[in-house]
């Protein structure tokens, strides 16, 4: 039995050593990745540097807010920190991290952060867990037992290896354009917008959404809650909840959910939720108008 236990210990020591060594190597590649989504995450959590306008949200923001266009038109530097599929538990530590370095003039967050279910996307933040107290705080609160697994370097980068070495890069300050589609979908072809989904708002997402807005407003930035244009009828109780939260926290609402100058031009959409690049250009013209009207530049 002693020999067996000895061999088992050798195995465990080697496993931890190999895990640590490979994890350290991958860590370097992760920080220098050319993958545009990971670049955004790295930028926000590690490399952020003095931008005037920041966009937070998931895919409805990452594919719609053309940072370079905003910078060109307003003269203010901007970065699209949005990341596909990432909800409010990602956005809040990201905000806290950037505010530690610099207070931007404008912070925009998508209203859909209020409704995003699940927390699987937290794994995107695991590479920063050991060095970022805000990430640690949220992960520990939502998944207390992850701390044990996160002692392993392999687990920190679990399922991210292909993404790290994926060479998609862009010089678009976080904006990821979507192409126009060759054929309209059934929803796009239909004359009337379909009934909207009934969005549930959980206490947890509401808590962090409000916390995000309060923190953003208290930093002194102008804070916008953005309701995106989507090819469906707006869900009124959800919209009322968004308005109420924005009002209570002192954030401004930019509501495109009933902007028919966008909704009636279905060729501007890549699918039901996402604008294509042409749509993003139109949206940016409208957003820049809002900034001008509010005296941001």
């Amino acid at each position: 039995m002693k020999i067996f236990i000895g061999k088992l210990l050798v195995f465990l020591v080697l496993l931890f050593a190999a895990d640590y060594l490979l994890g350290s190597i991958i860590s370097d590649f992760h920080l220098e990745t050319k993958n545009i989504n990971l670049q955004n995450t790295n930028y926000g959590f590690v490399n952020y540097n003095n931008d005037d306008i920041l966009f937070f949200g998931a895919s409805e923001v990452s594919h719609s807010f053309i940072s370079n266009k905003v910078t060109k038109e307003t003269g203010l530097s901007s970065y699209n920190l949005a990341s596909d599929g990432c909800g409010i538990y990602y956005q809040y530590p990201l905000l806290e991290t950037v505010l530690e370095k610099h207070t931007p003039k404008v912070i925009l967050i998508s209203a859909y952060q209020l409704t995003q279910e699940g927390s699987e996307y937290l794994t995107r933040m695991y590479p920063y867990y050991n060095n970022n107290e805000h990430v640690k705080e949220v992960v520990d609160e939502l998944h207390p037992r992850e701390a044990v697994k996160l002692a392993l370097q392999g687990y920190v980068y679990n399922s991210q290896i292909i993404r790290i070495f994926d060479g998609r890069s862009g010089n678009s300050n976080g904006y990821v354009p979507l192409p126009s589609i060759s054929e309209l979908t059934e929803i796009q072809k239909s004359i009337n917008l379909p009934e909207g989904e009934v969005y549930e708002i959980s206490d947890d997402t509401k808590f962090y959404f409000v916390k995000f807005l309060e923190r953003a407003v208290s930093s002194g930035a102008t804070v916008y809650v953005y309701v995106p244009p989507i090819l469906e009828k707006v869900n009124q109780p959800y919209l009322n909840a968004v308005k109420s939260i924005a009002n209570d926290t002192g954030a401004k609402l930019i509501d495109f959910s009933t902007d028919y100058s966008l909704l009636n031009r279905k060729e501007l959409f890549n699918d039901k939720i996402h604008l294509n690049h042409e749509g993003a250009e139109v949206l940016m013209d409208k957003f820049i108008e809002v900034l001008k009207k509010d005296g941001v530049y």
């Binding site: 080697l14 496993l15 697994k149 687990y155 980068y157 679990n158 290896i161």
Partner: peptide
Amino acid sequence: YLCVALLILWIGILN
């Protein structure tokens, strides 16, 4: 054993 264990850690679905 090490290869299989590392693969589990690196590409297994651990949630």
